Simulated assay, not measured.
Amino acid sequence: MKVFKCLIADDEPIARQILENYCKDIPYLELISSCKNAFEVMEELQKHEIDILFLDINMPKLSGISLLKTLTNPPNVIITSAYSEYAIEGFELAVVDYLLKPFSIERFLQAVMKVKNKYSNTVVEIKKEKKTPTSIFVKSDKKIVKINFDSINYIEAYGNYVKIFSESMILTQQTLSDFLEKLPENFIRIHKSYAINLDELKSIEGNLVMISENEKLPIGKSYKKLLIDKIEQNIR
Rank of each mutant, 00 (worst) to 15 (best):
M1F: 09
V3P: 01
L7E: 06
D10Q: 10
D11Q: 09
P13K: 09
I14S: 14
L19H: 05
N21F: 10
N21T: 14
Y22S: 03
Y22D: 04
Y22R: 01
D25M: 13
I26L: 13
S33W: 08
C35A: 14
N37V: 07
E40A: 08
M42T: 12
H48L: 03
E49W: 05
D51F: 09
D51H: 13
N58D: 13
M59L: 07
P60Y: 02
K61I: 11
S81D: 00
A82V: 12
L93I: 00
A94F: 14
V95C: 13
V96I: 15
L100E: 11
I105Q: 15
A111N: 08
K114P: 04
N117I: 08
K118E: 12
S120P: 05
T122H: 10
V123T: 09
I136H: 09
V138T: 03
V138S: 02
K139A: 11
D141T: 09
N148M: 09
S151V: 03
N153F: 12
N160M: 04
V162N: 02
E167D: 15
S168V: 10
T172S: 12
D178Y: 05
K182F: 02
P184H: 05
E185R: 11
E185K: 14
I190A: 04
H191Y: 00
K192L: 07
Y194I: 02
Y194G: 01
N197F: 02
K202D: 09
S212E: 12
S212W: 01
S212P: 06
L217N: 05
P218R: 03
I219M: 04
K221I: 09
Y223H: 12
Y223W: 10
K225S: 09
I228G: 00
